[in-house]
Amino acid sequence: MTRKKLSLTPYLFLAPALLVIATFVLYPIGAVFYYSFTKYNISTPPVWVGLDNYKALLTDKIFWLALQHSFTYLLVTPILIVLCTILAIVVNRKLPGINAFRAVYYIPVISGSIAVGISWRLMLDTNGLLNGLLLSLGVIQSPIQWLAEPSMTLPIAMLLTIWMGLGYYMMIFLAGLQNIPEELYDAAAIDGCNPIQKHWHVSVPGLRPQYVVVGVVSSLAALQVFNEIYILTGGLGGILNSGVTVVFYLWRKAFRLQEAGMASAIAIVLLLITLIFSIVNIRLMERGTEAD
């Protein structure tokens, strides 16, 4: 706001960053859109095929399965919201050493999904810790092949995502809780609320802005899940494609099967889903702020 004279200065400041974003974000969107109408294996030039890729997707059973898996994966969002709200309420108290606990809960977040995924794989292995524990407790009689069981692939990956997200979303909710005035809790106590009712009537409504953010961030992350599936299934997508999500299928088509045109069509579908999601979320956000 310093002056109004037309000068090149702002554009020069913006140029380097905009050049990078234009090359690696904006251009790729256009390119993917074009590739989605072509047969393309990356090594030879793309050949125009019109809507063939999209038509093929409509009848592609694995693609529909992948869509179903990706939507199922969205269940992590409500689970994370509930668990992390409770976790934030638990750590939002003044106790000696509370910061150390918060930090410990944050460790899975920064450790990276590869290291975490391999750790989990070691524990869930047929000869892993979990079977050892269950056997010694007498819960099971013979080891369960957790990672080879198709119906377990997606739930285990989701569990891993939830476990890695706990600390992250907890911190976001904690920041929200610390903005809620203490008087509201006092007023609730005077009105005869027990501790649980107090949180239900004060903390939960007070965290509305955080619910929107966490809802958006965690559901976009769920739609884009890849690393967990990759590690748990050794890059194969699980027996009978039991762990194949939209992004995993995109990756397999583009970089394993050299079908970049088809992968681009999947990418466009993913983009549309993401856009619809974002619009719904923004609407919710607007409604949320109006209500405030």
Binding site: A31, I42, Q224, W251, F255, I268, S278
Partner: peptide, 23 residues
């Protein structure tokens, strides 16, 4: 420019990976 940048927030990074690979 501001809204253009804001809009890129929803672009899945895996979408851009195919052209980025070609580049």
């Amino acid at each position: 420019i501001f809204y253009l940048l804001l809009a890129t927030f929803v672009i899945p990074p895996q979408l851009t990976s195919i052209p980025s690979y070609v580049l």
